[in-house]
């Protein structure tokens, strides 16, 4: 069934403001940025992590390292998929051991991606703690996962889809909500 954009729920400025707020919350919660590292989940979590790191750097005048995490190898639905997901590169330019890892993704939905990401990080080492930052939390969790930092809570129905579009990946900057509709 085709998807139709229903409404734009965030524009460029709204996204920016949400990230600035999250950055402040991160600083506050961690009492600074000592040992804080950002890990973006491929694909759109990566530019979000980079942007957060930049904002954090400006707030605290400190460079925050950013890593990229591909969770394909940790998915729980691999053998059920005909169209196999492509394995992307995992690249963390730091050792996660004893770090405060801020995991970043665009949308939190069932929680399964985050579950896979947690396993992936733990396989790489034992961080001091892991926190989760997402731009959108749309509900409908299937496992007990919650975010530490949320840009915007968006109540949705399961028929709806949230699209986060970022300049780095999509060339535009918006969050839209769309819905499956029968063709008439």
């Amino acid at each position: 069934m085709p998807l139709f954009d229903k409404a734009e729920i965030m524009d460029k400025d709204a996204i920016r403001r949400a990230l600035v707020r999250i950055a402040h919350e991160i600083v506050e919660k961690n009492k600074g940025l000592d040992n804080v590292v950002m890990v973006g989940i491929r694909r759109r979590g990566v530019p979000l992590a980079q942007r957060l790191a930049k904002i954090l750097g400006e707030i605290e005048n400190k460079e925050v390292p950013v890593g990229e995490l591909d969770i394909t190898l940790y998915r729980d639905d691999l053998t059920m998929r005909f169209d196999q997901p492509h394995v992307g590169r995992t690249h963390l330019p730091f050792d996660v051991a004893k770090k405060k890892v801020i995991l970043v993704d665009d949308v939190l939905y069932t929680g399964r991606t985050v579950r896979a990401a947690l396993d992936a990080i733990v396989d790489l080492g034992r961080p001091e703690c892991i926190q989760l930052a997402v731009l959108i939390d749309r509900g409908h969790r299937e496992i007990p996962i919650r975010a530490d930092y949320v840009g915007k809570n968006v109540p949705t129905s399961r028929k709806e889809v949230i699209h986060v579009r970022l300049t780095e990946v999509d060339g535009v900057e918006q969050v839209v909500i769309s819905e499956e509709k029968d063709e008439e």
Partner: peptide
């Protein structure tokens, strides 16, 4: 190309201290 690009991603695992993914 698909096998080669997948291998490029997977090669990282070989340099980990714990060389194991659950895939």
């Amino acid at each position: 190309e698909l096998i080669l690009s997948t291998a490029r991603s997977l090669k990282e695992i070989l340099s980990r201290p714990i060389k194991k993914v659950p895939t």
